[in-house]
């Protein structure tokens, strides 16, 4: 490989702009689906995990045990193995195992228990007395969940979502390599397999910037919502 100047690298990258943009969209799609699944399914699961603990509204040792065990089980799988294990399910749901939508299936599968744990931990920080006060005022379980738990934990939940997003940006790169596309995949294909170090460096820098932005936005929003 010839020695590369900075200008040559820039020209090289500029020529790849459409591909880079497409990779960004693929990553965005994988993340979007994964995070939506995490919020819609992992969120309620986390709330249930919390409420089934001893001393809580729906205290039930068996339910809590089964939920906790299941969450741990899914979380024990190294992500790449989870992906491979889920190939039949992915094929069933999406009809293919290639592309960002297919990659979103195992990503969602991993994101759900991950976020459930984060939600559970966050809810634990709400003082028991606040929930008890709502019970004493005659609030229903649903009112307690929405008006008390989620509202009191909102800042922590945003922080949890920030952590999840950044972790899954990383996971999406793994998913990308096995046919999902995205920024990580681009970095591997060009930067590693074709020895185009400039592409590798550019993609890593791009990810660094994205992570910084996500964290910054997450911190800002969490701080704004926190009135404690």
């Amino acid at each position: 490989m010839e020695e590369m100047t900075f200008a040559a690298a820039l020209a090289d990258l500029a020529g790849m702009a459409p591909e880079i943009w497409q990779a960004c969209q693929e990553t965005g799609l994988m993340l979007g689906v994964g995070l939506a699944a995490a919020i819609l399914l992992g969120g309620p699961l986390g709330i249930w995990l919390y409420l089934s603990q001893p001393g809580q509204l729906f205290a039930n040792r068996l339910v809590n045990g089964v939920l906790g065990w299941t969450v741990n089980l899914v979380r024990s799988f190294p992500f790449i193995i989870l992906m491979v294990s889920l190939v039949p399910l992915t094929r069933l749901l999406v009809g293919s195992t290639i592309g960002p939508v297919a990659a979103a299936v195992p990503l969602s599968f991993a994101a759900i228990p991950y976020f459930a744990r984060l939600v559970e931990q966050t809810l634990r920080e709400i003082p028991r007395g606040v929930v008890e006060a709502a019970e004493a005022m005659g609030a229903s379980p649903l009112q307690i969940i929405i008006k008390v738990l989620l509202n009191e934990a909102r800042s922590g939940l945003i922080s949890s979502l920030t952590i999840l997003t950044i972790s899954f940006l990383s996971y999406s790169a793994v998913a990308g390599v096995v046919g999902g596309g995205g920024i990580g995949d681009l970095a591997i294909r060009y930067g590693y397999y074709r020895f185009q170090t400039d592409v590798m460096v550019a993609m890593v820098l791009l990810l660094v910037v994205i992570v910084q932005i996500i964290q910054l936005l997450g911190n800002r929003l969490a701080a704004r919502l926190d009135k404690r």
Partner: peptide, 16 residues
Amino acid sequence: RQHLGMVFQQFNLMAN
């Protein structure tokens, strides 16, 4: 319970 008010030692107000 909606007709039974309760006041707590630690206030138990909602911070947000």
